[in-house]
Design a protein around this nucleic acid. Sequence first.
DNA 1: CGTTAAATGCGAATGGGTCGCAAAAGCTCC
DNA 2: GGAGCTTTTGCGACCCATTCGCATTTAACG
Lengths: 169, 169
Amino acid sequence: MRMGRKSSESMNGANRSYLAQKLTKGGARLTAQRKMLVEIIQNSTGHLDAASLLRLAKRRDSRIHRATVYRTLELLKRLRLIDELDLMHLEGEKHFYEPRTRSEHFHLACFRCGKILEHNTPTFERLKKEISEQTGFKIEVIRLEAGGQCEECRAQADSSQSDASRAAR
Amino acid sequence: MRMGRKSSESMNGANRSYLAQKLTKGGARLTAQRKMLVEIIQNSTGHLDAASLLRLAKRRDSRIHRATVYRTLELLKRLRLIDELDLMHLEGEKHFYEPRTRSEHFHLACFRCGKILEHNTPTFERLKKEISEQTGFKIEVIRLEAGGQCEECRAQADSSQSDASRAAR
DNA sequence: CGTTAAATGCGAATGGGTCGCAAAAGCTCC
DNA sequence: GGAGCTTTTGCGACCCATTCGCATTTAACG
Ligand SMILES: [Mn+2]
Ligand SMILES: [Mn+2]
Ligand SMILES: [Zn+2]
Ligand SMILES: [Zn+2]
């Protein structure tokens, strides 16, 4: 009977109250799978899709099933613990997820290099406020995404553009 | 050999130059199918998904195939003649399409009654400008969507809320 | 018109996501 | 710390939107 605690577990202790609070509100049970999935999402840096999340989870406990991942994502969305992103369908039709613990931001997807930029400005906050005021609509989730060219790729495109026009002469 | 022209066809004459211009740029051919699909999209009021578009198209020429619809939508997206919407996945994973001829707006999807509101405010324009200025990102397509409760549904929810609290006492 | 590259129809194949059900695991209350 | 009830999981079959490869047709250019 190992009583040793890994750092992730002791850290879990701190998280548990927050999660327990959030998850148990509404009658959701705090299962091992859910704890694991939430922890992976929280600790992950980038934007996870369901398949990646499953892969990472299987590394800890190979018995976890795809359906559980999808069901948990659905639950976390409902509880507003994560946001779902499309990232302009840059990599097919799948969705990406990120914890709502980080400060709010939107996403810019570069069609050329595939990079995802995160950004925010007070004007976004203002826009949301205006929307509610002007339409009476109560915003529960909002998603702002743009596709185009990032600064670097634009510079590159411009220089090859001038190459092309030079060659055309 | 019927020489009569339906109004939709004569209207087509006006559109054709615009379409021909847009479609033939980049080497796209002006096929009967493409003309038909673009016309359906332009004349449609609501937000069409691929299946609805196919259904409407089949009504005019039953030989048109699903794959052609998808390929045409892809083309029109590339040419920036239409925008693709998710509408917060209110009706599953499918996408919706609308012509870019109408003035720009974003979409608010009511989770309760399923209504889609269209809205705009100058702050949105300003936000886009700021994004470009602050990040150097060149926006080619942008999508702003919110999900929540429309004014009517909110009023309804509030009144049933107070019913509930009254009942609870 | 004939030529040629591009587009279409077709049906099979993908891929992301969902479902129904039996077994397993949380919670609650004692 | 179990009994009993309810929720959740694993599982595989299934679904639905979209894509693909290929043979045939068609638009566009000369
Ligand atoms: Mn989507
Ligand atoms: Mn992000
Ligand atoms: Zn880039
Ligand atoms: Zn509503």
